[in-house]
Amino acid sequence: MNLFRLMGDVSHVLAVFILLAKIWRTRSAAGISGRSQILFTIVYLARYMDLFFSFISLYNTVMKLLFISASCATVYLIYFKFRATYDGNHDTFRIEFVLVPSLLLAFIFHYSMSFFELAWSFSIFLEAVAILPQLFMVTKTGEAENITSHYLFALGSYRALYILNWIYRYYTEGHFDPIAVCAGIVQTILYCDFFYLYVTKVLQGRKLQVLP
């Protein structure tokens, strides 16, 4: 554990809770992509199956359970409890376009040809692109509410901080995980455009609007 990874994890947890709290307190899922949230739930379930047979630390176990339960709760709020407020008309990104390539990539790049390792690789590739339905929705509606922007900023920062953590770990312990690093870089690049808008608009008190 180093400061970069800790900050990355804090940012990740913050993102998850910002989103849950926003939906709960406004009693609305407007502007939130249910499809992205389903993809994140698949990511956590596929990656954290190791909960049952490998113990890393209490910290890891608690975080894994937290991500699985929070993402399931988010999907439940969007598709069941506050379904009437969910903006399905604008949430039209075809998720098979990210599910199928992630699965194919997992069959090509993995650390061993076992079910759990393939699921792990699949989850890493899927996580990199799971936000696409949400970004697509923001582009389609042309704007995002400020809390949604804070959520996206915290979620994007998490993988960017992990990149610093990987650089640090490479120099201090010789640790190098090429699959996670490549996917993590792609994931962070996807947020770059949003980061720019966030800094130039949201942080200056304006609403995030995308040019047509």
Binding site: R5, D9, H12, D50, S54, I56, N60, M63, K64, F67, Y111, S112, E117, W120, Y162, N165, E173, G174, H175, F176, D177, P178, I179, A180
Partner: peptide, 10 residues
């Protein structure tokens, strides 16, 4: 790369 398959990150 041996450390990679340990998956000690989230």
């Amino acid at each position: 790369v041996s450390a990679a398959a340990a998956h000690d990150e989230l």
